[in-house]
Design a protein around this nucleic acid. Structure first.
Length: 245
DNA sequence: TCATTAAGCGTTG
DNA sequence: CAACGCTTAATGA
């Protein structure tokens, strides 16, 4: 069975159940821009919002597909990558909880330029492109959120270029981790990031053993704490600036 | 030679 | 069962 994309995953909600009312209510608390809207705006968003469970490997959106939704990660972990049929598969970034993405594509009304795929069982929300534009046209708070998001992501982009230049695996892991702990882009993460060493390996481009070794170094340096099934930050600034010796 | 990796497998949470 | 640690053989600078 070919991987489903987000709209069809919604359409298949009879097969793959939507979230329960209680679960969705809990999900809403994890949407960082919702409290910037007025009552009218929030009412429309709640009417248009779709929240679905996504299985590991499932595609949330696919390169070349026309834009349909602006997406957010409620729970789980997604990865953004290029189209592997067009060349060497490259993972650009991971998308942890609290992250919203696709606004560049929605703004331009173009086709998606990346594949977004679930690395593990996740919960993904989306609002239709029309709703996104409607919010942009009337909510200053929403505009601020999107503008700030674009700005912060530009910083991530520069950081990613730096990571590419780093040769030492420990430093690459440190910077990549720091990016995932970004408090504004991924407010759902907090201090505790649920990510396996294997998943981190996929994102950074290293093997599981090497990631494990790097995490041990970072823990020895006191910047993180390695725990079962994830990582806890102790010192985000130091993690970002970590140098190996 | 040295660092790194994929794969397998036993252990642990 | 998922995540982790450990071992081994292969790879490449």
């Amino acid at each position: 069975m070919p991987p489903r994309t987000f709209p069809s995953a919604i359409g298949a909600s009879a097969v793959q159940p939507s979230r329960s009312r209680a679960a969705v209510a809990e999900d809403l608390r994890h949407i960082p821009w919702l409290d910037r809207l007025d009552d009218t705006e929030r009412e429309r968003v709640l009417a248009d919002l779709r929240v679905v469970n996504v299985e590991p490997g499932e595609l949330v959106c696919r390169v070349g597909r026309p834009v349909t939704y602006w997406f957010g990660v409620i729970d789980g972990l997604l990865k953004m990558s290029n189209d592997s049929t067009l060349g060497v598969p490259i993972t650009f970034t991971g998308m942890p909880p609290g992250g919203w993405f696709g606004e560049g594509t929605v703004l331009k009304g173009e086709a998606y330029r990346y594949n977004i795929q679930a690395l593990r069982k996740s919960v993904v929300a989306g609002i239709p492109a029309a709703t996104f534009h409607w919010l942009l046209d009337r909510s200053i708070g929403f505009n601020r959120f999107v503008m700030n998001q674009l700005n912060e992501r530009l910083g991530q982009f520069i950081a990613a270029r730096e990571i590419d230049r780093l040769t030492h695996p420990d430093e690459r892991v440190a910077r990549s981790l720091a990016a995932l702990f970004h408090p504004m882009l991924y407010p759902g993460v907090g201090e505790w990031l649920r990510i396996t060493q294997q998943e981190l390996g996929y994102l950074v481009g290293l093997s599981r053993q090497r990631v494990n070794e790097a995490l041990a170094s970072l823990q020895a340096a006191g910047v993180i704490q390695v725990e079962y099934g994830g990582v806890r930050v102790r010192d985000l600034v130091a993690l970002r600036a970590y140098r190996s010796h």
